[in-house]
Design a protein around this nucleic acid. Structure first.
Lengths: 400, 400
DNA sequence: TTCGATAGTCTAGTAGACGAACTAATTATC
DNA sequence: GATAATTAGTTCGTCTACTAGACTATCGAA
């Protein structure tokens, strides 16, 4: 409900529609009676609201449920897996991944397009996204899902739906919704709204929902070469005054003097970034894509006690812990989640980061844990922004 | 509007009441027609709502206004300076200050009680607060103001309306609302709700409203010996997962090894805290209370080029800048405001802090400025939480 | 078969915002 | 000065959407 807007009966209705839809999503198969009880609305109102949601294709009736006691058995309602759905895309320098997510949160289809190098002209990435989109749109067509929106996650700074800067892609001031919207029209799916979000921010949201223990204040650190963080405050993404919240890659760390691509020296990226870390450990060759998964060669070297690998990871952990220790007193997050290439470095790395964090910020109760989400989180989390928006404002969907 | 609660016509009414009241507060003397235009409600609704607000004593009619053109002149409405008001208290180790604030934001009365040492038993502070409260309650009585609430600001960590820990006062787990409520009953003013908030958080709120240029994300750093920060995100105080957001005093800074009262070494307090700074500069004797105002003796020494004073302030600025540079990438605040004993250190100090911040966090566009608010901000900002609550929820006041 | 319990629908009632017509008070114009 | 134009504010009937409570439906248990 907008704070500075008047509330009329329509807004009241919108709010209650969203309330019921949200509860239906949270409670799974649920009776109207239960929805009335949980929402605080009356049975008659719930009948009315669920009626609209059924007509609009957001809910589905799945016959009568339990008969564990006396009384008429309930007609159970669930979110409609065949109704509106969302497409999520992840754009990285070496691939475009995508998925189609229905309202219930189930992935109906995935698509992946690898590419050598998508850096430079954004149109290159848009072109690589085209077959991914085509496949997902086709799937949606064949499963009777209507695509309600396309959300894109990419490693960069976003403001006002525009990519302000995406370092690892070489983009600046790119109006991606516009470019992709064009492509969608070419694919016969014009008019579908397109949104963009930072991949770290999306991952942070995903971590929040993944682990029920994690509170409303969470920091997710991700990235391979360009490190960055997604900051959640009150369960929502905190973008910062200029959209720069979470840009950790070029924070200077103590004792580091390596030159960085940004022109400066001693940036966190040059110590804890994946390529820099591998190089320092004596492992040259290209950095592994996060798509691979599993324990890294570096982690094996560290466990075997190889001196250069040991010292490089120790230094990376110290630097990362120092930076995290700097932001913890400002945010007091419930937890800091390490993603990107960090989980593959093993438990010891995690412990070293936490130790460095505590050394800087001894009083803090913030936990540090590794991300347990699969590498395709970003596309999936992007897709959930579409389905979440549907659940949070069903009326907007009906209007369309 | 609560997210998980149903919205009925009553809530709709509450929201619109608050909307109109807020606009009346923002626009000053204003006609019903203008309120209708700005709020988006119809004239008839505004008549109805303002009628209630007039009856409830939140608004007052001040006769007809301008006649700068054709048409019937407006009957102007303003917030009622004689209606409900708020009392704000500031509790520090050496004094209790208080003020009575009416709805329009005007200070109707002030009171101050100095004391040698209020540390230790919270009852000592409560006792010192009693004459302050008595005076303010008397004033309210004589000016026909009804005290709608008492809000207390103190340097400490607050959670669930309870003081978790106030280092400079020596308090732990203190239920101040309960203690003060008791005192209020003894003063014949029982039943008035009492709230507590951290003084840095309150100061941050005040800075936000003071300078229109400052955005929704702001960090205020304050304190004399125990440094701390108030963090505003989206214009609201960010407390952190455990209420520890902004606790900067015991962050370790590079190159510092002095033992701290907390048992650790190298805390920010031991380098940039007021007493520590004076000591390092060779100025012993008690630290000046912030109530004094004006340029400090230390600032004069620095300007005259006294070596110890110079090196001590340089080191303090570097340490503070380092810590601020650590939190800036997480929050991306529009501005960092330096309060406490820092403004008295002069412009050069400010510049040195900003330089140290940039050295750590080169890409940031965050500004650093000195607080321009008077030393009694905390009591006043506390009082505004009471009046703000009235403006944000007039219906709750009518109910009482 | 009947009764109690629970699910869900239906209908009248109500709160509160809207809209149009109306009154009120002023300036501009003839 | 009478009258028109303009803006302020009120009144009253209408509309939307939630509530309450009666009513129907469907089950288990006696």
């Amino acid at each position: 409900m907008e704070r500075d807007a008047p509330v009329r009966p329509v807004q009241q209705h919108r709010h209650n529609l969203a309330l019921v839809t949200r509860l239906a999503a949270r409670l799974g198969p649920v009776s109207r009676a239960r929805l009335a009880q949980e929402s605080g609305l009356t049975k008659s109102t719930v009948t009315q609201l669920t009626g609209e949601l059924l007509d609009g294709g957001l809910l589905r009736e799945i016959g009568t449920g339990r008969s564990g006691g006396p009384g008429r058995p309930a007609n159970l309602l669930v979110l409609n897996s065949l109704g509106p759905a969302g497409i999520g895309l992840q754009i990285e320098a070496d691939h475009v991944a995508g998925c189609l997510l229905d309202l219930t949160g189930r992935v109906r289809d995935r698509a992946l397009r690898r590419a050598d190098d998508l850096r430079g002209d954004p149109l290159r990435a848009v072109k690589a996204a085209e077959p991914v989109l085509r496949r997902l749109l086709n799937t949606a067509n064949s499963t009777d899902n209507v695509v309600a929106g396309v959300a894109v996650g990419l490693p960069g700074r976003i403001r006002d739906a525009t990519v302000v800067r995406a370092e690892s892609l070489g983009w600046t001031e790119t109006n991606l919704p516009w470019l992709l919207g064009d492509r969608l029209t070419a694919l016969g799916a014009g008019g579908i709204p397109v949104t963009v979000a930072g991949s770290h921010q999306l991952a942070a949201r995903a971590e929040r929902w993944f682990d029920g223990e994690d509170g409303d204040v969470l920091v997710y650190v991700g990235g391979e070469d360009g490190l960055g963080a997604g900051v959640l405050v009150g369960g929502e993404v905190h973008a910062g005054a200029r959209g720069a919240a979470g840009e950790l890659g070029h924070v200077r760390v103590g004792g580091a003097e390596e030159p960085c691509v940004c022109g400066g020296r001693g940036c966190l990226d040059t110590v804890a970034g994946q390529s820099a870390l591998l190089l320092a450990a004596g492992l040259d060759g290209p950095a592994r894509s996060r798509l691979a998964g599993g324990e890294s060669g570096l982690a094996r070297l560290v466990r075997s006690g190889e001196p250069r690998a040991l010292s490089a990871t120790r230094r990376a952990a110290a630097a990362l812990g120092e930076v995290l220790g700097g932001l913890v007193p400002a945010l007091d997050p419930e937890v800091v989640v390490l993603g990107g290439h960090f989980p593959a470095l093993g438990e010891d790395f995690l412990g070293a980061v936490e130790a460095a964090l505590r050394a800087r910020c001894p009083g803090s109760a913030t936990r540090v844990r590794a991300s347990r989400l699969p590498p395709d989180v970003v596309a999936r989390a992007a897709a959930t922004t579409v389905t979440d928006a549907l659940i949070e404002n069903p009326a907007a969907w009906f209007a369309e």
